[in-house]
Write a protein that binds this DNA or RNA. Structure first.
Lengths: 211, 211
DNA sequence: GTTAGCATGTAAGGAGTTACATGATTTT
DNA sequence: AAAATCATGTAACTCCTTACATGCTAAC
């Protein structure tokens, strides 16, 4: 299992193309709908990435069957699909649980593709992230204790807010982890028809929206 | 007012050195205590930055008055202080309210130095950030509405959590803005009680939220 | 007497960003 | 016919990361 390293964008592109082939423009929209809250990518990032992945044989332009208009010199859409190598590579990425998958940058995307990730890996990533965040909380508190340094109210407010956000995420992770454990390694399974909701649904507590 | 552009690190370094002179190692600790929840910098980032700022004459090595040990070949600490140019430059940076100050990357640091920022600028930055986040919420909802795309439960959960984080930060900003308005340009003073609710997610990630 | 923490750096490079450039198609 | 949106790209650049390299000093 060759410890691959890939940027967020690369993983996201591969993951999305695994679901269904797409052209760049659409990909970007889906990308930003998926990760919108965390980051946004522009075409200046996406197209070079597609080019690179194509060059490495992980994705390929689809022999397109666009129904209506294979007409003249039209700059046609380029639909990309995952190749066999691409699929393998993606699976490889998705079976890794390391720092890259729980640090701030990577976690969001990684989580987004949990549906294709093995249950044990999911758990390790969730726990990895949690302990990462707990370290942060710890360091924070240590810093607050030796409050020799006079901090103005904005600094204080920033830290308070930061701490609260982190704690919030820890609680979220706790719920997810509990829910994963409860499901006991079952495959996530949801074969397309519909999801009977209920069974393993993480986090979303019926009563409380917020804290 | 020459529209300067500076990285997060640069601004943070200048801001911290404005409070008091320091050497690199200490600077890094303070840096990560300040921004710990949002990002962390290593020495590999800091020292080159200090070098660069020195080269530009914005900071300088202090003629050091280390009391006890100016002894032999000891690799002594290098204490940096802000030069006059540095102060001017910093003020210039702090008087700007543009995208760089309310995007995910910049907002945290920018807020951390609100104590040295004019009241009207503070307000514009807070409002800028809020409307940035509101755009995001909007785009999100639009995405959810056309839920043609079948999303699995993890994707959904990620988006739900992301949305909630953003909304939370908006509420936090609302309170800050109200409090700024109430103070009506008054110099900063400790807000009453302080907000029981509050967090949002300033940074880039599920717990944090960023772009 | 060895780990942990203090203290300072460099070289190489990665992952996107910004600004620009172009043209087709749909909507108003 | 103008404006918005779809659609694809490149060149130059920036900010920061990673891995490495060094040595001193305090604590256990």
């Amino acid at each position: 299992m060759t410890r691959q390293r890939a940027g967020v964008l690369e993983l996201a592109v591969l993951g999305l193309l695994h679901e269904t082939p797409m052209h760049g423009y659409e990909l970007r929209k889906r990308l930003n709908a998926l990760l919108g809250a965390f980051r946004a990518f522009g075409y200046g990032s996406l197209y070079p990435c597609l080019k690179d992945l194509t060059g490495r044989g992980l994705i390929a332009e689809e022999a397109f069957a666009e129904p209506a208009k294979p007409l003249a010199g039209r700059r046609s859409k380029i639909v990309y699909r995952l190749t066999a190598e691409g699929k393998e590579y993606l699976q490889d990425l998705l079976s890794q649980a390391g720092p890259a998958s729980w640090e701030d940058d990577g976690f969001g995307v990684r989580f987004a593709f949990f549906g294709q990730t093995r249950a044990d890996i999911r758990l390790r990533i969730l726990e990895g992230r949690r302990s990462r965040l707990e370290e942060r909380v710890e360091a924070f508190r240590a810093g607050l204790t030796r409050t020799r340094e006079r901090v103005d109210r904005y600094t204080l407010e920033l830290q308070r807010h930061g701490l609260e956000s982190v704690e919030r995420e820890v609680r979220w992770l706790n719920e997810l982890i509990a829910s994963e454990r409860q499901a006991g390694g079952e495959p996530p399974r949801q074969p397309r028809g519909h999801t009977p909701d209920g069974a393993g649904a993480p986090a979303t507590r019926p009563g409380g929206g917020s804290e």
